[in-house]
Amino acid sequence: MKTKITAVTLAFATALTACAPQQTGGTAGAWPRKGKPITLIVGFAPGAAVDAAARVIAPVLEKELGTNVEVLNKPGAGGQIGYTALTNAKPDGYTIGATGSPSVVVSPLDPSRGATYTRASFLPLGMQVLDPMLIGVAPGSPYTTLKDLIEAVKKKPKSVTVPTTGVQTGEHFALADIQQRTGAQFAPVHFSEGASQAIAAFLGKHVNAYVGNVSDVRDLVTQGKIKVLGVMSGERSPFLPDAPTFAEQGYQIEAATARGYSAPAGLPADVQKKIESALGKAIEDPAVVAKLKNLGLATVYKSGPQYTTYWQEQESTFKNALPLVRNEG
């Protein structure tokens, strides 16, 4: 009997060691400890641009740092659940996260959200992409131009439902901006898990129009499943050369989501340096840039300090606009 038990135990132990995956490279420095994986938290459901960009960059970071990088989705509350997990993590370099503006910038500014973090809780490591907002409708929609849509909504406020990726996210701000400048009040429906849910709702015709990022719709445009009425950027997006901008149609509205990566504040200086440079290399890696281009994402790299400054600017911009998207209930 005893020998049998020992045999089973031994079998277990061998099983444990036998399935050891091959390790790639490995640096000698104190961080990262060889074999200890780095978790990359994404505050949105899998499938949309934030998640895709993180999954593209993870293996390149892996090579640069010599340890596993695992993407972990923590969707909900328009990114806040992921940001909370990120800022609550130990600042040891083994947890980093994708941070997107405006959601990460704004969520701590509204006291009703009860966010446990502020801007100072993050250490921005580097920015990767700037993804412009746009508005579009299904091909058979009665609205054929941006003007049609906006005039219709002006006449009958809240008659057109549009998806957002959560309360006070980029989409929500863009809608507020439109309302402020044109008087057209859309009815937002908050799909707080991220763009994949918002797209599904649009494709299923549960909402009347789509507000989102260029990267969300690039593939849908080629399939003829969405007609883009206007892109909220200064010039036409290289990914959607046929889609007019808001400015072309007489509306001075620009909006975009800026996405980067941050660590919890308090990272040791040497770890910060290592991770920042690895991230910079990974973001600017030609293969990564090409893969992002495939997804409709234009790489706009900003280093850690530049990203910090950008974050501060964003904070003051959005602070002014916040009352527009506050819950007044």
Partner: peptide, 24 residues
Amino acid sequence: WALSLVLSVAGSAGVFHGFEQGLL
């Protein structure tokens, strides 16, 4: 004693190192 020691070592040190080396 023998069985207890073997199993305890396997479950403590064995599992610890197995997880660390094998599963990261």
